[in-house]
Design a protein around this nucleic acid. Sequence first.
DNA 1: CCGTGTCTAGAACGATGGTTCTAGACTCCG
DNA 2: CGGAGTCTAGAACCATCGTTCTAGACACGG
Lengths: 198, 198
Amino acid sequence: MMAETRDRIIVATNELFRRQGYNGTSLSQISEAANATIGSIYHFFPGGKEALGVAVIETTGEMFRELFESIANEAPGPAEAYVAFFAGAGTVLAESGYIDPCPIGTIAREVANVSEPLRVAASNAFASWISAATRHLTNAGIPTEQAEQLAHVFVATVEGTFVLSRTQRSTAPLESAGRCVSRLVTLAIDETQRTPTP
Amino acid sequence: MMAETRDRIIVATNELFRRQGYNGTSLSQISEAANATIGSIYHFFPGGKEALGVAVIETTGEMFRELFESIANEAPGPAEAYVAFFAGAGTVLAESGYIDPCPIGTIAREVANVSEPLRVAASNAFASWISAATRHLTNAGIPTEQAEQLAHVFVATVEGTFVLSRTQRSTAPLESAGRCVSRLVTLAIDETQRTPTP
DNA sequence: CCGTGTCTAGAACGATGGTTCTAGACTCCG
DNA sequence: CGGAGTCTAGAACCATCGTTCTAGACACGG
């Protein structure tokens, strides 16, 4: 009973943040969307809106990391994984009427210089994605340093295409990004195989 | 006299939006930072905060497009241009204490589903960057379709690395992105030269 | 000197923001 | 029953939001 309401609050907040950002969303909106009174929100998140934001970032961060890992595991190869990831994001984006698929980047840009707790939460979420992608790429045989570089670019491109595709209401940037990231990965693997580890 | 105040308002608003986003910035803050009364703001922007936001996006959009073009012209080759662009962005970011270098992406994510005028302004700004980059790449001999794809990825990566670098307070993502985008460009040019246009 | 147009000053408006607080309702173990 | 703990209801708080409005300051051609 208790976790149910808490989860409803987080889910509703997540969607509202994705649609209108952190500062553009009021607690009364959240209360209405989650079918929970403002008193309930403060009961579960005594730190108020900021604490709720941190919880949303942490939840979403884990969710995306798991999503990436499951797509990476199911894909026939590393290169295909990235195409599949961007393609999936495109479908979600278009189906939702071009609501932002990810609240983390939005919140980060709004408050990175204003709220340390929120900035740190976002930074941790990104870091977990980067290390998941790095792990995935080193498993494919790419040397650590280069894998980290590619992982950075992957995460950055994800966030960047979300802005671009959403603003232009088109999935074309996502598709381009999938192809390009996948090309970078195959290129790195080819190089590795030409010069095998001594 | 008149254009002076108007410019001061736009410059101050630009910086405040970069630091705290659109909804996180109040007109009273803008008024104070620009040394202009709220009456002045409404005199120059009768459409209120939204119209001011559109003006900021348009101004910044042109500024970045010109910046890209001048860097592209000065660089010894297409590949070097992108490394230089990301490196320059990194310097600006670090020097400013990791304030967002670009208000457009922030505003876009906050209000793309809430304010059509702002969404359209952001979309136009991005489109102008994409077409500038596409022009630059086709001039280097890359076929149109592939040039457009690369231009999409370039712009998306710029916006994405801004979020990432700012949140993590590190210029590493920007450097990785410069290297990777530049590698994609040289790769495309190499392919073009191997299979010259019939 | 006058008056027209541009720009600024700042009070006033209703609405809503996040937060706090006190009661009340519910569950569940004894 | 009963009472401790968990959760909800909703009024009340002050601050601030974006916007509007009316006066006044200033410049300048006649």
